[in-house]
């Protein structure tokens, strides 16, 4: 076992969190702050995928369902009953956790590719139902969040950048949770399941319960990101919050960053969201196409060369550095 100075590391993390909160002091352009805010949203959403997909290797292709539930529940409560997103968001998160419980009940028995495919099919079922329930959800055309006034209580601000502090706080909370889980007994159980589910079961781990806790926690994180997304964009439709494309995108951020570590979603989204925005921002639909080609090729390259993502590269770099002095001593 490697010993580390926990206080030194914690200080470093605290400084990092503080730096994240202080970004607006740099007086960056509105555009940059908008991208930074959206990046935060996707970091939180992808962290939700990491808990179940990365930590436990239960590769779900339906995480958009949780994002969509968060976005739709808070938006519908706001539109139909004037409930503040500060209440609607947590209610959406609870609804997502409930959905995760039902989905988990159905899919945790399944293995590998079957698991991925059924989560995909269930997510499509949710999308079909939301599109069909037009009177309350707005159907395929989606639903707008009417702008009432600039108000913290209504979580409504005129510009995307005004949401930055809240988004950054949510990132800190989400990553703190992901990090806490990683080093907790729950994290050890999840890793045991990832490495060998049968062995984990034989070692006395309640596999079903462990997966369920991780899946529900992840659902809560992704749903909260969904609520924030709805508030920032002021508009929710099935294509943007319930699609297969979004499910894949969230997994992609986590995998490229490193699905097995808490900071993977941060690294992945911080790299890819600005890249995507920059290429899309250049105007035509072709730009969006080109950006996503890069996503696809990066994903291909990562899974072939280093399935542990950026975190895997960092790890092998560290190992090489640590190995170097002993090589120097050896004849």
């Amino acid at each position: 076992m490697r010993t580390e100075a926990p206080w030194g590391r914690r200080t470093l993390l605290a400084i990092g969190a503080l730096a994240l909160l202080c970004v607006p002091l740099l007086h960056l352009s509105d555009y940059t702050m908008r991208v930074a805010t959206m990046t935060c949203v996707y970091v939180v959403a992808a962290a939700g995928w990491t808990l179940i997909g990365g930590y436990a290797n239960q590769i779900t292709l339906g995480q958009a369902t949780m994002f969509g539930i968060g976005a739709y529940v808070s938006t519908m409560l706001f539109v139909h009953f004037h409930v503040s997103p500060w209440i609607g968001g947590p209610l959406g998160a609870m609804a997502a956790a409930l959905a995760a419980a039902v989905i988990g009940l159905l899919v945790f028995r399944l293995w590998g590719a079957y698991f991925a495919l059924v989560t995909l099919a269930l997510a499509e079922m949710v999308r079909i139902l939301v599109e069909y329930a037009q009177p309350i959800t707005g159907g395929p055309q989606g639903i707008s969040v009417p702008f009432v006034r600039n108000s913290l209580w209504l979580l409504q601000f005129p510009e995307a950048k005004d949401y930055y502090e809240i988004a950054a706080l949510l990132v800190i909370l989400a990553l703190a949770l992901a990090r806490a889980v990683q080093s907790s007994p729950l994290g050890y159980r999840l890793r045991a399941i990832r490495d060998d589910e049968v062995a984990a079961k034989l070692a006395g781990i309640n596999v079903f319960r462990t997966k369920m806790i991780a899946f529900m926690l992840g659902a809560v994180l992704t749903a909260l990101a969904g609520t924030l997304y709805a508030q920032i964009t002021g508009f929710v439709d099935p294509d943007s919050v319930l699609s297969i494309t979004l499910s894949v995108q969230l997994a992609l951020y986590a995998i490229i960053g490193g699905a097995q570590v808490w900071w993977g979603p941060l690294a992945g989204a911080a790299l890819l969201v600005p890249l995507g925005q920059a290429m899309t921002g250049s105007g035509s639909g072709a730009g969006a196409g080109l950006a996503k080609i890069v996503y696809g090729l990066l994903l291909v390259a990562i899974v072939v060369i280093q399935p542990l993502g950026i975190a895997g590269f960092v790890k092998s770099l560290q190992r090489r550095k640590r190995a170097a002095p002993s090589e120097a001593i050896a004849p």
């Binding site: 996503k292 696809g296 994903l299 291909v300």
Partner: peptide, 8 residues
Amino acid sequence: GISIALQN
């Protein structure tokens, strides 16, 4: 990844 690349 291949599907994302082809689609786009």
